[in-house]
């Protein structure tokens, strides 16, 4: 459990639920959820090495490209579909969110906040932000769609998506005031409205 959003995600998941973890990496979140919440889960991953890690720890994983959609999954077949810190690296942002809400009753999206003050400060100082959440240079980043929390919430509004719950974190701690300025990581639980 090395990622700061995992603990919050775990509190949002009801025991025995059915979970799909998109971009599941080495399967550690699912492994944790299976162990603590007795969920039935599948990961989706594209990277060979990460698939091997999932298989090694006994986490079921499906090797498909998220950009191509979730056609192997039936509508409404999951309680939760998780996309953890991956949305900003997706080319087809609208399509994947729509697919998540087709396949799952709820979706959990976590994303780094581009509007975090340190990022704004670095931009003001004339440089693209580099931080724990955005560790890459501008030229080698896999991220293609940066957004602030305000942007994501507007997006949900426009797409008739209801935000059921959100949590804004900085360094793993909850942020209550000026979240779009002081939070560097956001978690949203969303559903079709």
């Amino acid at each position: 459990m090395e990622r700061r959003d995992y603990e919050t995600i775990a509190t949002w998941i009801k025991p025995n639920g059915k979970v799909l973890d998109l971009g599941c990496g080495d399967g550690s979140l699912l492994y944790h959820l299976i162990g603590t919440k007795n969920v039935q889960g599948y990961g989706v991953e594209i990277d060979d090495a990460k698939i091997l890690s999932c298989i090694e720890r006994g986490v079921d994983v499906i090797q498909v490209d998220l950009e191509a959609g979730l056609s192997v999954f039936e509508s409404d077949s999951f309680d939760y579909v998780i996309l953890s810190q991956t949305l900003q690296a997706m080319r087809h942002t609208e399509r994947i969110v729509a697919e998540m809400l087709r396949v799952g009753r709820q979706a959990i999206v976590t994303l780094p906040n581009f509007g975090y003050w340190l990022n704004r400060w670095q931009l003001l100082a004339g440089h693209m932000p580099k931080s724990r959440e955005f560790p890459h240079h501008w030229y080698d980043t896999p991220n293609v769609h940066f957004c602030t929390l305000a942007d994501f919430e507007t997006f949900c509004d426009d797409k008739m998506i209801r935000i059921v719950e959100k949590r804004i974190l900085r360094g793993g701690n909850p942020v209550k005031i000026f979240p779009n300025l002081l939070g560097n990581l956001a978690l949203y639980r969303i559903e079709r409205s």
């Binding site: 599948y42 060979d48 298989i55 079921d60 499906i62 498909v64 192997v72 999954f73 039936e74």
Partner: peptide, 21 residues
């Protein structure tokens, strides 16, 4: 192969799928 995967997923069966380059 994905047709098989989908049918197993539809049943909530435990399945993993690897597509090898």
């Amino acid at each position: 192969s994905k047709e098989i995967v989908k049918a197993l997923l539809d049943n909530g069966a435990q399945v993993s799928y690897a597509e090898i380059k």
